[in-house]
Design a binder for these strands. Structure first.
Lengths: 210, 210
DNA sequence: AAAAAAATAGTGGCTAACCCTCATTTTTAA
DNA sequence: TTAAAAATGAGGGTTAGCCACTATTTTTTT
């Protein structure tokens, strides 16, 4: 039986140990290397070419999304599972839109991770949520953030960085009205409505905006 | 040789597993029970009367500080080690002032926890020293949050959950004006000014709100 | 070169959040 | 059992973001 080669990255040593031990309990899994941050994860994944990489979302230097982007682009055969504290639909949607294969909540990791590794290794996607929610995500074809233009992404990042419309306008030498138009267009594309909805969204997905 | 009896509490199963495994590797340590939240921790500590209890700071129902207070008051012989993500000097100072015996950063837990258990069991206090780690974890948001009243914390949580003033008012059967007053008082206590500053803050620290 | 998309800028209206002040009742603590 | 703290409620004002339009210039694509 072929073993599934895995590389695991997390910046909390104890969590990393827990992940490694959980995975190592499976006889057909082989944790070939570990990483403490995104940069190291990228290097080790490129060096070892594992079957599956499990990446923490919040890591120093490079976060999980940034590592995933690079891997997905250069090594499309390597399956990526993202681990996160956040059970946030918007972040999950953004991650899956990037082409990440699995999304596991850290709270559920001890139960779900082994299944997630087998699932993505088999070529399917895995999201650890209640089944009713799962179907919603898998059927959702909206690429959302991916549909934004360069300027719209820039402004979304600025909003996530707590900038006001006026600040953004001043710093980029454009009219506040232009910024407002971009805001409106972003809201339309992302189906956001109501008071401060864009600000809320921007802050929530700020990890995913690179 | 007498074994050191330990109870460990953490709301993240994988972290809890990591802690248990780390402690269980020591031949003279005995992890007699585990807990997933503060309430359970309190019950199990009272039931088993361990030598040492390691408590996560951020746990649902009761946080580590609250559990520690109760234990220290009723069972002064049980040693308490607090585990936290936050390298916040004010929190550490507050914890040690309460009479807590050890304070270990989760980042360093895999290296420091065994030593911490031996040290506090021997009757001394233990604080895991900041090695070369990232200083951006040092923020005083949590200290400020501690000064909020129950109602203010509740409303801050609701704001972090994307609720509007009207929604909060309706769901708790109080006037929107009351909610607005609480918002204003929270802003004062936290030194927040300007448009949507409270919303931004609430979303930012939503992980720390227990 | 023409068409499409993106970036630019504006008018005007609306609402939620912020900000200040004040007052009453309830709960907690000294 | 008082005094302090917390929770409740309100008036009145400012502002930033949302919303629905229209319109010109620049860039990209076909």
């Amino acid at each position: 039986m072929k073993t599934i080669k895995i590389i695991t990255a997390d910046d909390h040593p104890l969590f990393l140990k827990g992940l490694r031990d959980t995975l190592a309990e499976e006889p057909d899994f082989e944790v070939i290397d570990l990483a403490n941050n995104g940069q190291q994860a990228l290097e080790k994944i490129e060096k070892w070419q594992p079957d599956v990489a499990t990446l923490d979302l919040d890591m120093p230097i490079l976060n999980g999304i940034e590592v995933a982007k690079s891997i997905l682009k250069n090594y499309p055969n390597i399956k990526i599972i993202l681990l996160s504290m956040h059970k946030d639909t918007d972040i999950i949607r953004a991650a899956m839109a990037l082409g990440i294969h699995g999304y596991v909540f850290k709270d559920d990791a001890v139960n779900d991770l082994v299944g997630a590794v087998r699932t993505v290794f088999g070529g399917e996607n895995y999201i650890s949520v209640d089944t009713n929610k799962k179907s919603f995500f898998l059927n959702n074809d909206n690429e959302l953030i991916g549909e934004l233009t360069k300027m719209e992404k820039l402004i979304l990042r600025e909003i996530a960085n707590q900038k006001t419309t006026k600040q953004i306008a001043d710093e980029h030498f454009i009219s506040t009205k232009t910024v407002e138009n971009h805001r409106a267009n972003i809201c339309k594309k992302l189906n956001l409505h109501g008071n401060n909805s864009l600000l809320k969204f921007a802050i929530k997905v700020s990890d995913s905006l690179v």
